[in-house]
Design a protein around this nucleic acid. Structure first.
Lengths: 112, 112
DNA sequence: ATTCGTTATATTTGATAAGTCATAACGCTT
DNA sequence: AAGCGTTATGACTTATCAAATATAACGAAT
């Protein structure tokens, strides 16, 4: 059969999204590049889009997820806080577990 | 903590969506009402939107998911095929299992 | 002082999705 | 024959979201 099961998970706080796959992807790109603008470029996303995503995350999370600096050597930059790194890691672990779980589910169903 | 984990699952065929939560919801409403127009009204959805969703499902699925009749007693109607009912049931079972699984996952994480 | 690359933000434009209207075909009921 | 409620479409309008553009602030380096 051609049927494939897919999933997306996200974390909400107060009924608003805090973290989803896209935001996690962006946070990881920030960690790699040390810059929000470079991370946006890496993902083919406009800077504004990237900035508003990160802004939303920081406003919803109980503690800041990124730190930024303006000006200076290299013009500035952005990086993840320890809390941000732990959020990303937790999310990715649960997400991968979810995929494996669903794979097993579809194998036991009539669809496969 | 206020963090809640949420998920959506869907079934794809050839890279296009076949069935998701919204479509399943609509199929169940058709099963209840025996009519596409009544199902759309029940869900606060335009008839056209409902029709194009069902049309897409029937075009992607390997077998028809609904049967319809035009004219006659009551003007016509729509109902699920046996295959459609089995698709809905399989989807809902996997979906509920996924929720339970994620609840367990979040309880074992640092977030809870 | 000027340049540079970045963060931060508002404004405008464009693209895409969704919603609204209108209309035809159909077959039972009256 | 006429009416009714439904399925089935197309045309048009509206709303929503993403993208592009412009601008300011900042601090180190030159």
């Amino acid at each position: 059969m051609n049927y494939k099961i897919k999933s997306r998970i996200w974390i909400e706080v107060d009924g608003h999204i805090l973290l989803g796959e896209g935001r996690v992807h962006l946070l990881k790109a920030i960690e790699e590049t040390g810059s929000l603008s470079k991370a946006a470029k890496l993902l083919g996303m406009s800077y504004k889009k990237a900035w508003s995503l990160i802004d939303a995350v920081n406003k919803r999370a109980e503690k800041p997820v990124t730190t930024t600096s303006i000006g200076g050597k290299g013009g500035g930059g952005a990086s993840l806080t320890a809390y941000g790194k732990s959020l990303v890691e937790t999310f990715e672990t649960i997400n991968e577990n979810c995929w494996k779980f669903l794979d097993a589910q579809i194998k036991n169903s009539k669809l496969k």
